[in-house]
Design a protein around this nucleic acid. Sequence first.
RNA 1: UCAGAUAGCCGGAUGGCUGCCUUCGUCCAUUUUUGUGGGUGGGGGAGGAAAGUCCGGGCUCCACGGAGACAUGGUGCCGGGUAACGCCCGGCGGGGGUGACCCUAGGGAAAGUGCCACAGAGAGUAGACCGCCGGUGCGCAGUUGCCUGCCGGCAAGGGUGAAAGGGUGCGGUAAGAGCGCACCGCGCCGCCGGUAACGGCGGUGGCAUGGUAAACCCCACUAGGAGCAAGACCAAGUAGGAGUGGCGCGGGCUGAUUAUGUCGGUUCAGGUCGGGUUUCCGAGGCCGCUACUCGGGUCGGUCGCGCGAGGCGCUCGGUGACGGGCGUCCCAGAUGAAUGGCCAUCCCCCGCUCCGGCGGGGACAGAACCCGGCUUAUAGGCUAUCUGCCGCC
RNA 2: CGGAGCGUGGCGCAGUCUGGUUAGCGCACUUGUCUGGGGGACAAGGGGUCGGCGGUUCGAAUCCGCCCGCUCCGA
Length: 120
Amino acid sequence: MPRLKKRQDFIRLSKFGRKVGMRHFVLQVAPRPSGDAVNSEPRIGLTASRRVGGAVQRNRARRRLCSLAEQVINLNARPDQDYVLIARSEILSASFGQLKLELERALDKLNLRRRASDNR
RNA sequence: UCAGAUAGCCGGAUGGCUGCCUUCGUCCAUUUUUGUGGGUGGGGGAGGAAAGUCCGGGCUCCACGGAGACAUGGUGCCGGGUAACGCCCGGCGGGGGUGACCCUAGGGAAAGUGCCACAGAGAGUAGACCGCCGGUGCGCAGUUGCCUGCCGGCAAGGGUGAAAGGGUGCGGUAAGAGCGCACCGCGCCGCCGGUAACGGCGGUGGCAUGGUAAACCCCACUAGGAGCAAGACCAAGUAGGAGUGGCGCGGGCUGAUUAUGUCGGUUCAGGUCGGGUUUCCGAGGCCGCUACUCGGGUCGGUCGCGCGAGGCGCUCGGUGACGGGCGUCCCAGAUGAAUGGCCAUCCCCCGCUCCGGCGGGGACAGAACCCGGCUUAUAGGCUAUCUGCCGCC
RNA sequence: CGGAGCGUGGCGCAGUCUGGUUAGCGCACUUGUCUGGGGGACAAGGGGUCGGCGGUUCGAAUCCGCCCGCUCCGA
């Protein structure tokens, strides 16, 4: 699962991407620019700002998002898109199953679930 | 028992499935090798504070002749420990507590300067408001008196203040005062104990020396500056520049030397401006080298980067901090930044309870070059030693 | 990660060091007057744990130490 690492990428997602806010996080999605190499996997970026809490809380929020993306986006989302997950402070008190359901609902809202025709 | 004091320690445990970082091995593909990609197996993977960045070092670069001085900053009872420290240990002085014990920036104020508001008579070469005492004048009363003025003495009492120029008591005196005496405090001298800070004893002085140095300052000791985003290298790529300073300037012949190079000698020629009778001197330009500054580009990778003032155990020396010896172990290394997610059992805490259980929760907090400290945050628990007024057995 | 700087009424700032003893200025706020009313002007007034805790001192916004928050800079 490739990660987004450049500041440029995050700015592009927040400027031109589609956005859906949930109770525990915010999901941003944008199609991959044509210049970049086209992989078969979706690319993920993670953000946990200081609004989430101290270093321990930010680290934990980022790890849970990472695990979440691995289990939901990597398997069920369209692979030709870039995704950014932004943590909110409520993520620390939620259960993992709850978060999984919420992320699937967010993908449905943006109509990005991997269709049967893609899922060979 | 209860209450408390000190010192030290722990910081949930075990297992399963599945991920991430790193390291070692192995297999396959590719490759001239280093390597790159994929698979597979083993090892390791946050803290006592990793935090704040308040001190001290290592390391790196810059500056600098050695050394010293000045300025500025820091530290500040004594002795010891340490690589070093503003840290630690032991002791001393002062303060607090019934006690175990705790707190303590604690050099110098007779080297000098400054400050001490308001209040108050007087705030640092003391002072005289009320007052006390003596003398004297006037008045009243009429004789141990009262009122008031003047002259002189005094600092005990009142009052002001944070602080009033030793304290308490006795003597003394017109009233008083270290004026005298005793004790305490203070200064000086001597002796004794102690490495020392300091303590004890004796003598003596007769009060002189208010506070403030986290005010300037003096004394002693101690510090060059910046920081791993330090610094070094590789790849890619832009400009191939601008300014300032310094040095040198072309050709021929000849000598030295292994030398196309370098050095010495000699000769000829020369363009712009100014000076000069000439040799020539000065300035400017061009070119080359060099130093600094500015401008431009990159913002990828590798190293630095973890065997260390290292951890653990035993032992010896020391009251202790700590030091010596022996044995043993290798124990995080990320860079949009790994150390995770889920489940089960046990442990602890809270709530409910039909006493079978059920539900919720797990302190403070996350390495980023590395060590030694300090400070701050921290649920709950464990161990050892010691103390006690009141209370209970 | 490292290095600097700043916290004073509602807002923006002085005062802080050399030099300790009164917390001040502008805008805003309240009341009153001028105006038929508004705006504006004038006059009066209220409002500050000086970021927090501790220490030095007779006395701390100021001096010293430790915390908290914010801002800026560094390949």
